[in-house]
């Protein structure tokens, strides 16, 4: 209940929840077999698959290689999306003219799924990392723009007026007023962007990857190897979680005044 509840360490509860899920999973698939092994792998099978991918390797690489390559791809796509999306969003938030000019095109391209860009990404950029980064970029770009836009719009007009009356203009206005003011929402956008990057990775690696977690998922799908699919999913969840934690640290560090 809301009021009587004293909050224990989140980590402890989270950890015990995950442990409970594993126990339930074991009970359902192995002990009682309510879920037949054909439909979902047992913990033992997943452990076996994990051992296989870390020791012998799977889908042309070992888990750590897949993990690192995927992180690299996501970072590239994320950086490109942030580097372009945040300034563009802020510009649209600041200037109604820029908004009127850019927004229709943005609205036109926005609802097209990243996956749908794959055919074009292949013919334009080939089978290398560039095409994969492009697909990831498409996914991450939209939330970066929207939230940066909303961030600038959320700044109280009197703050800007006050800064102006103090003679703050141009680059300094952006640095001292607009950027800090928009930062909380920009970070919201970055979190969403990062998530979009990871959920798009699998799709991006349909473009003939050699290593990568998405490639593991794809290959395991082709091999009908559900245990390996689960290993890949856990890998993606851990990588995504780690990057989000890092982003949270960055957020806390960059906005010391905004600590919750």
């Amino acid at each position: 209940m809301r009021n009587g509840w004293r909050e224990p360490s989140r980590l402890a509860v989270g950890g015990s929840t995950l442990a409970a899920v594993v126990v339930l999973w074991y009970l359902a698939t192995t002990f009682t077999q309510i879920i037949p092994p054909v439909y979902f792998p047992t913990p033992a099978e997943v452990l076996q698959a994990f051992r296989q991918i870390t020791v012998q390797g799977y889908a042309d690489g070992q888990l750590q290689q897949h993990f690192l390559h995927s992180c690299w791809l996501v970072l590239m796509g994320f950086a490109a999306a942030v580097g372009l999306g945040v300034p563009l969003g802020m510009l649209m938030g600041w200037s109604r003219r820029a908004e009127a000019l850019i927004n229709p095109v943005f609205l036109l391209l926005r609802p097209i799924p990243p996956l749908a860009w794959i055919p074009l990404a292949i013919v334009w950029l080939g089978l290398g990392d560039a095409a994969k980064v492009l697909v990831i970029w498409f996914a991450a770009f939209v939330p970066a723009v929207i939230n940066s836009y909303a961030g600038v719009r959320s700044i109280e007009p009197y703050l800007i007026e006050a800064a102006r009356s103090l003679g703050i203009r141009g680059a300094m206005l952006v640095r001292e007023v607009l950027f800090p003011g928009a930062l909380p929402l920009i970070f919201t956008g970055l979190r969403l962007s990062l998530q979009a990057c990871w959920t798009t990775l699998v799709a991006a690696e349909l473009i003939g990857a050699i290593v990568g977690l998405g490639h593991v998922l794809y290959q395991a799908g082709l091999d009908l190897f559900p245990a390996m699919i689960v290993v890949g999913m856990i890998g993606v969840a851990i990588a995504g979680g780690l990057m989000t934690t890092a982003l949270g640290r960055l957020e806390a560090w960059s906005m010391p005044w905004h600590r919750r």
Binding site: P119, L127, L206, I207, G208, I210
Partner: peptide, 12 residues
């Protein structure tokens, strides 16, 4: 060897 669907192969 790079694995992908037939449609992607034709594109590539």
């Amino acid at each position: 060897i790079k694995s992908m669907g037939q449609a992607e192969i034709i594109s590539a």
